[in-house]
Design a protein around this nucleic acid. Structure first.
Length: 742
DNA sequence: ACTACTCCCATGTAGACAGCATGTC
DNA sequence: CTACATGGGAGTAGT
């Protein structure tokens, strides 16, 4: 089917023609025939890279041409910005004055454009969409097209219920709205399509061929053929990597743990290095430099070493700069192999000639090592083959025996992806969504709640009589915690409204309020531990040797905790110690312990530290608001800790850290040289600032606070610098030198 | 006496969304 | 209730 023949505005047609897209892929054509351009709902369950985005784009643009507005829901922030960047290319399409406008809304980023609702396309995560709905965003009712990306995430225990409830609310709010759902191929796609009232496009078609095989006995075995792999290293997986490189391709290796991904990248690097040409090596050295600049932790050093050899690892412990460097380095074909945890399995567009699944098992605390779902394998395998660049893609599993090979063929390569199941039916999921449903007036009674649930995917798959009792338990809980009131007619209290708005689990709110009630001797530790107790916080686990250390601390500061469980309840007590350990990490963060130290002591990556801080900031904000509304006097204290978590610094730096471009490290340098306030910095000798922070940063700093950047090239100073300033100047010089040595 | 290698056992285990108001090294 | 890859330390054979 040709773009020319489609019933779309000429501007849209020309946009695609001029970007070189003239024909539709078969699944896209099928979606058109199911009424995509006539406003019908469509569920496209097709592989990655088979053109899902184009489907969505056509429908959105057509709708916008008629004066509509589109909402594009994604599961990941990274995906949101990827789509946002893509849709911004529409600004040249003259469907209306000024072109098509795009906005983005995620928890950490909201587009500057006057107001989100003035955009034609809004990209948002599912949780942000839910949050926007909870806060009664007015333009939600103007939405005419909704795109749901990765709709199979309905199956996720954590996040599926949110997506499900959000979609249900949107459908109730906008009955006439067109829904385009995009999904991986799953067993029961028809069931989801049915729920959405959508036409189903089900296809395995890919623009690039995919060969799936199992490596065993020195060769890759496909069902009908075999490919010998030269044993150049003594390690099966490394041989597969080298084989791909010699063939001119790149490799993506999926590992089951961070440690394994780092280890494999390192080992493979020793062999890969020999295959690099001079130009590539030079370009890689450039990336290495940036890696070292972006963090001096041990992981940074190891990553730098790997990249020098043309390999890299990728997991959530990396900081965002490192992640981006790895992704970009791989995309530009400089990094030849990336060993990754499932971070890269779904979401980001990062294809490779060959995908190696080094382990199809993953640890689960309940089940030991457990085989991953077929759906997940298919997502990893689907990364193989770059459209238009590779002749084909290959996905390879590794077997240690003939039987295992047979098993892998049967259970993965030839298997169909699992069915997806709603996870809404648990008290955990219902508690929070029932509250928001009532807060927003989607339901005003117990019957109303049940009626709402009848419209969800859960009810589409199950009889709902089974969860009536669960609903009642939730309602009792919410009433008992004073978030709801009334018997037949249910209304939210101001507390309930606040909890829904803050987007925290009502259970978290209950724990925080109870803790505030009980606490007698309130310190930073008290509040920090309190937020670490909530189910919304992520926990650190106790490692061997932690017990004693943390137990000692608990005993010596017992009165600062709102409650210490009895040590003889071993599991409870260990869980409690885990919470305390998490609180200690956060305390180290706000007391300016170096990232490197925190990394080592708590055995976490830079990326984790930021993730913990981000969560804690949100929960501390919530604590502050909850304290205020329940009449506790700790709201102010929580508020200032919240700010300290944001910057990772002590109270005394709060003024300096407010300057753009100055964070915890630079502010500390300034403070320790006697510059305690913006005013003092403004009056300081520019040359001294230059010595402290480097001339360029100093100049930026002075511009930022509205002072004249008057640093002289020679670095001469007026008068005698205070000796303390001199010391720290020397120190900073030294650290600069040692940075260079490495 | 020192080194290279093997074996055994302790150890630790993926990812990532949300508030609010603007910008880390 | 369920596993397994990794790496460090101890022990051993070789020079």
């Amino acid at each position: 089917m040709e773009i020319r023949s489609l019933d779309i505005p000429a501007e849209v047609r020309d946009f695609y023609l001029s970007s070189g897209i003239g024909n539709l892929y078969p699944p896209q054509a099928e979606a058109i025939s199911k009424g995509l351009l006539e406003g019908r709902n469509v569920l496209a369950a097709i592989p990655t890279a088979s053109g899902k985005t184009l489907l969505a784009e056509l429908a959105m643009l057509k709708s916008i041409a008629r004066g509509g507005k589109a909402l594009y829901i994604v599961p990941l922030r990274a995906l949101a910005s990827e789509k946002f960047d893509r849709f911004r290319e529409f600004s040249g399409i003259a469907l209306k004055e000024g072109g098509v406008k795009v906005g983005i809304s995620t928890g950490d980023f909201e587009s500057r454009d006057e107001w989100l609702g003035s955009n034609d396309i809004i990209v948002a995560t599912s949780e942000k969409t839910d949050s926007l709905l909870r806060n009664g965003t007015s333009w939600m009712e103007d939405i005419t097209t909704i795109v749901v990306d990765e709709v199979h995430l309905l199956d996720s225990a954590n996040r599926g219920p949110t997506l499900e409830v959000t979609l249900t609310k949107l459908m109730k709010l906008n009955p006439g709205c067109q829904i385009i759902a995009l999904s991986a191929t799953v067993g029961n796609a028809y069931e989801v399509a049915n729920w959405l009232g959508a036409g189903l496009v089900l296809s395995e078609w890919r623009p690039t061929d995919l060969m799936e095989g199992v490596f065993y006995g020195g060769s890759i075995n496909y069902r009908t053929s075999q490919k010998q792999v030269h044993d150049a290293s003594g390690d099966d997986a490394i041989n597969l990597v080298l084989d791909t490189l010699e063939d001119g391709g790149q490799c993506l290796v999926f590992e089951s743990s961070r440690k394994n991904s780092v280890g494999f990248a390192r080992r493979a690097g020793m062999k890969v290095a020999g295959l690099l040409d001079k130009r590539t090596r030079a370009a890689l050295d450039d990336i290495v430099e940036q890696v070292i600049e972006a963090g001096e932790s041990d992981t940074a050093k190891v990553l730098a070493q790997c990249i020098r050899n043309g390999t890299a690892f990728h997991h959530a412990g990396l900081n965002s700069a490192h992640r981006r460097l790895v992704e970009d380095g791989f995309r530009s074909n400089l990094i030849k192999m990336v060993a990754s945890t499932p971070t890269l399995a779904a979401g980001l567009n990062l294809p490779a000639r060959r995908v190696i699944v080094r382990s199809y098992k993953r640890y689960d605390p309940n089940f030991g090592m457990h085989p991953i779902p077929v759906l997940e394998y298919k997502q990893m395998a689907g990364r193989a083959g770059r459209p238009h660049l590779d002749p084909y893609g290959e996905a390879v599993l590794i077997a240690k025996s003939y039987n295992e090979m047979e098993m892998l063929f049967e259970n993965y390569i030839e298997a169909n992806a699992e069915d997806i199941w709603s996870k809404l039916g648990t008290e955990n999921a219902l508690r929070t969504h029932i509250l928001s449903t009532i807060v927003n007036g989607f339901a005003t009674s117990r019957d109303g709640v049940m009626e709402f649930i009848e419209a969800t995917f859960f009810a589409h798959q199950n009889d709902t009589w089974g969860i009536v009792s669960v609903v009642d338990e939730c309602l009792d809980f919410l009433r008992e915690k004073k978030m709801l009131q009334g018997e037949t007619r249910l209304t939210a209290t101001s507390l309930g409204k606040l909890v829904s708005m803050l987007y925290i689990d009502p259970m978290s709110a209950a724990i925080i309020i109870e803790g505030l009630d009980k606490a007698t001797h309130v310190t930073e530790l008290t509040l920090m531990h309190l937020i670490c107790k909530t189910p919304d916080m992520r926990q650190l686990y106790l490692r061997a040797g932690d017990y004693e250390l943390i137990n000692d601390l608990v005993l010596s500061r017992k009165e600062e905790f709102c409650e210490v469980p009895a040590p003889f309840r071993a599991t409870d007590y260990e869980w409690f110690l885990g919470e305390v350990k998490t609180a200690l990490l956060l305390l180290d963060w706000i007391n300016e312990r170096s990232m490197d130290d925190i990394s080592k002591v708590f055995n976490v990556g830079d990326g984790d530290i930021h993730a913990f801080a981000e969560l804690a900031e949100w929960l501390m904000h919530s604590l502050s608001r909850l304290a205020a509304i329940t009449g506790h006097d700790k709201a102010g204290m929580a508020g200032s800790i919240e700010k300290r978590i944001h910057y990772g610094a002590r109270q005394e730096l709060m003024e300096l850290v407010g300057i753009r471009g100055i964070g915890r490290v630079r502010a500390r340098k300034l403070y320790d040289s006697g510059l305690h306030s913006i005013e003092e910095v403004r009056k300081a000798d520019p040359a001294v600032l230059g010595g402290l922070l480097g001339p360029r940063t100093a100049e930026k700093l002075l511009r930022e606070i509205g002072a004249r950047p008057g640093i002289r090239p020679g670095g001469g100073t007026d008068g005698n610098p205070d000796p303390r300033t001199m010391d720290s100047l020397m120190e900073s010089e030294q650290s600069t030198f040692s940075d260079f040595e490495r």
